[in-house]
C-alpha cells in the first residue's frame, strides 16, 4: 500500500526546532543534575547512565531495523534522552541486567509497541521505571549512601529515602517531630545530600535545568508550576490540619522525585497536553495523585504513577480543551 501522507491544516508554520535540537536541549538541561549525582554517588552514577543510554539506543536501533523494518532514527537523540531519564530514576547501585531489562521495556513496550516517537501515550522512561519498580522491588528500593559509597557500585551500603522514613515512621505511629530528626536538613535536601534515585536528589540542579529549558523554549512553565502549586497547596492544607502526622509542604516539594518528574518527565511532548489550559488540568491531576499516594497510599512516592495515570488522560484533555483556531476572536472577559 502506498504510504499515506498526512497534511495538517494551515497555517504551516516553519520553525527551526527539530526533534534532534530539542532532545539535545533536554540532555544539556539534565547535565547539572547528572553532575550532582556523580558527585554524591560516584562511579555508580556513571555506570548506570552509560548502561541505560547504550541499551536504550541499541534496542531502538534493533527494533526499528529488524522488527519495524524502517530506517533507524536513533540519531535524533530521543532514545538517548529516554536512556538518561531512565537512569535518573534508578538507584545507582542497581545491577546492570536490571537496567537492560528496564531499557527494553521502556523502548520496546513503552515506545515502539505504539509505533515509535510521538505515538506513545506513556512516557517511555517512566514505563521502564515503574515496570522495574514492581518487578524488582528489593533492588529498586535500596538506596546507596551518598558520598561514602562513591567508589562502590552494587555493593554500596544503603539506606531509606526521606519519604520512606516518613512513611514507615508515621505508619508505626511515630510523630512527625521525632521523624524530622532522622532526615537530612532542608539545605541538604535541596542541594541533594540524601538517599534517593540517581537523578532525583538535587532539587536545585533540576530546577536549574528546568529554567534553562523554559528559557530555551523547550518546555513551557505551565506543567511544572501547576504540579508544584497543587502539591504545595494540598500538603499545606493537610499540614495545617494536622502537623503531627503530616510533613510540611516544603519537605514534600524538595524530596522524592517530584522536581525530576514535574520538570523532565511530565513535560514530555508526546505524552502531555497541547494547550496551557490542558496543561493546568494535567498538572493539577498529577499533583493531587502524587500527594494522595504519598500520604494515603502504600508507596512512599507516587509521582511516577501519577504521571502515567495522567498520561492516559491526555488524549481526552486534548479532545476537550482545544486551542483557539488561528484567526479566531479571543473572547474578552
Amino acid at each position: 500500500m502506498d504510504k499515506l501522507i498526512t497534511v495538517s491544516p494551515s497555517p504551516h508554520v516553519y520553525g527551526d526546532d527539530t526533534v534532534k535540537k530539542l532532545m539535545y536541549g533536554v540532555i544539556y538541561a539534565l547535565l547539572p543534575a547528572f553532575l550532582v549525582s556523580v558527585y554524591f554517588f560516584g562511579i555508580g552514577a556513571l555506570i548506570v547512565t552509560a548502561i541505560s543510554v547504550v541499551s536504550c539506543v541499541m534496542f531502538e536501533y534493533l527494533i526499528q531495523k529488524y522488527m519495524m523494518k524502517t530506517e533507524p532514527s536513533v540519531s535524533d537523540g530521543s532514545a538517548a534522552v529516554t536512556g538518561v531519564l531512565l537512569a535518573m530514576n534508578l538507584p545507582t547501585n542497581i545491577p546492570w541486567w536490571i537496567i537492560v531489562i528496564g531499557a527494553l521495556v521502556a523502548i520496546g513496550v513503552g515506545k515502539m509497541s505504539f509505533g515509535g516517537l510521538g505515538n506513545n501515550p506513556f512516557n517511555p522512561a517512566l514505563v521502564g521505571r515503574v515496570f522495574l519498580f514492581i518487578s524488582f522491588p528489593v533492588q529498586m528500593t535500596s538506596w546507596p549512601e551518598p558520598i561514602v559509597s562513591r567508589l562502590q557500585y552494587t555493593d554500596a551500603a544503603t539506606g531509606a529515602t526521606p519519604l520512606g522514613v516518613i512513611k514507615e515512621g508515621l505508619a508505626a505511629g511515630v510523630p512527625m517531630s521525632r521523624l524530622a530528626e532522622q532526615i537530612p536538613g532542608y539545605l541538604d535536601l535541596f542541594i541533594g545530600h540524601l538517599h534517593g534515585s540517581m537523578g532525583e536528589i538535587s532539587a536545585l540542579a533540576l530546577l536549574a535545568g528546568g529554567i534553562y529549558m523554559i528559557a530555551r523554549k523547550i518546555i513551557t512553565w505551565h506543567i511544572p508550576v501547576s504540579i508544584f502549586c497543587t502539591v504545595f497547596l494540598f500538603t499545606g492544607i493537610l499540614w495545617l490540619i494536622n502537623p503531627y502526622d503530616n510533613a510540611d509542604p516544603v519537605f514534600h516539594l524538595i524530596t522524592g522525585g517530584l522536581v525530576l518528574g514535574a520538570v523532565f518527565m511530565a513535560t514530555d511532548y508526546a505524552t502531555s497536553p497541547m494547550t496551557p489550559k490542558g496543561m493546568w488540568i494535567y498538572g493539577t491531576g498529577i499533583g493531587v495523585i502524587t500527594v494522595a499516594i504519598r500520604v494515603y497510599g502504600a508507596y512512599p512516592e507516587g509521582i511516577s504513577f501519577a504521571i502515567l495515570i495522567m498520561n492516559s488522560f491526555v488524549p481526552l484533555i486534548n479532545k476537550y480543551v482545544k486551542p483557539n483556531r488561528f484567526g479566531e476572536e479571543v473572547k474578552n472577559g
Partner: peptide, 18 residues
Amino acid sequence: GDGMLVFILAPGAFIALG
C-alpha cells in the same frame, strides 16, 4: 530467585496477553 514480579501481578497479565 524471583523473576520480573510484574508478570505475576495484574499489569503483567495485560502486557503478556497483549
